[in-house]
């Protein structure tokens, strides 16, 4: 908005007011121009009082969220990259906590918390036999808030497993895996496995007795894989030895050592999170495509059950 200029401003031709002489004319012209600039700046500054009307704001937020008409409420969701996974409207009873328990959302939120704390932890951690354990000590005793960081990562991981199970439990109790959501249930089962594997691969990283023996116990089972493990049924017949079987592949060696630490680290920080993110994308996308949240749906009656089409 261009503030309107006062009449005759800056032209220096309004003869009546102008004092005589060249020097006097210059001063009065400059004064008049200065006044005009001030007025203009004041008028402009008024427009900045509402930050939401500035070009900068409008370039970031595409719609105004301060009015609560239906169009704006819908746009608030639809035009936001983080929220657009949501529909604009939702079953009124689905916003009650008692139906969904919020467990799926909390699981995803914990994944975000874990990514955030995990990235920060990566700054202080080397996946090598020499340094790994010392890095944990360093985190616990020297890094500012290092202990809090590690604790949060640990407890969020445990909590995520519990919330994943409870989410699955709720989906079963509400029959939400039923048509058309069968496939998304399967994606969810894959995500459950990935969650467990994420936690398991992280267990080894402190390189302490707890992680070492837990992973030893866990990977020892892989020895017994049928056909692919050196001690499994038909394993020896397939040419499997402790130095080429599936356990060797998992650990990068025949014992839990430096290669296992590195493999565990890469699976934990890159491999599984990437795969899990892909499955999450499908999982969330399918929720929308399969008709959004499943309920609370109106109850059906036994007497209304249709006969099977044969």
């Amino acid at each position: 908005m261009e503030p309107e200029r006062p009449e005759g401003n800056g032209s220096g031709e309004s003869g009546e007011l102008a004092p005589k002489g060249r020097g006097a004319g210059l001063v009065s012209r400059a004064r008049a121009q200065g006044l005009a600039l001030k007025e203009r700046a004041e008028a402009e500054a008024k427009t900045y009082k509402d930050p939401q009307q500035t070009q900068l704001w409008k370039s970031i937020f595409r719609v105004s969220h301060d009015r609560s008409d239906p169009r704006n409420r819908s746009l608030a969701i639809l035009s936001n990259v983080f929220l657009h996974l949501h529909p604009a409207k939702v079953n009124r009873d689905a916003t009650r906590y008692s139906f969904t328990w919020g467990m799926g959302g909390i699981t995803f939120y914990l994944f975000i918390v874990l990514t955030f704390t995990g990235i920060l932890l990566m700054f202080y951690y080397h996946p090598t036999k020499v340094q790994a354990f010392r890095d944990i000590l360093y985190l616990e005793h020297d890094v500012p808030f290092g202990k809090l960081l590690r604790n949060m990562h640990r407890w969020a991981a445990h909590l995520m497993i519990i919330t994943t199970w409870l989410h699955m439990f709720r989906v079963v109790l509400t029959g939400s895996y039923k048509r058309p959501r069968e496939f998304n249930w399967c994606v969810g089962v894959v995500l459950l496995v990935l969650t467990l594997l994420l936690s398991f691969t992280g267990y080894l990283l402190p390189d302490d007795q707890l992680g070492f023996w837990a992973v030893t116990v866990g990977t020892n089972m892989a020895r017994s894989t049928p056909m692919l493990g050196s001690e499994g049924p038909f394993g020896p017949q397939m040419g499997m030895t402790p130095f080429n079987d599936v356990r060797f592949g998992l650990l990068g060696g025949s014992i839990v050592d430096s290669n296992a630490l590195l493999r565990s680290y890469i699976w934990h920080c890159i491999g599984i999170p990437v795969v899990a993110s892909l499955f999450m994308a499908v999982h969330f996308w399918r929720i929308r495509k399969d008709g959004g949240i499943s309920g609370p749906a109106p109850v059906m009656l036994e007497s209304e059950m249709k006969a099977v089409k044969k």
């Binding site: 202990k147 407890w155 302490d208 070492f212 837990a214 116990v217």
Partner: peptide, 24 residues
């Protein structure tokens, strides 16, 4: 996280088997 610390045992030692050694 403020109240409870994540566990950290002694450094990994293949020669000292934990008993019981438990999975997560």
């Amino acid at each position: 996280s403020i109240l409870l610390n994540a566990p950290l045992e002694e450094p990994a030692n293949p020669n000292l088997t934990m008993n019981p050694s438990k999975a997560p």
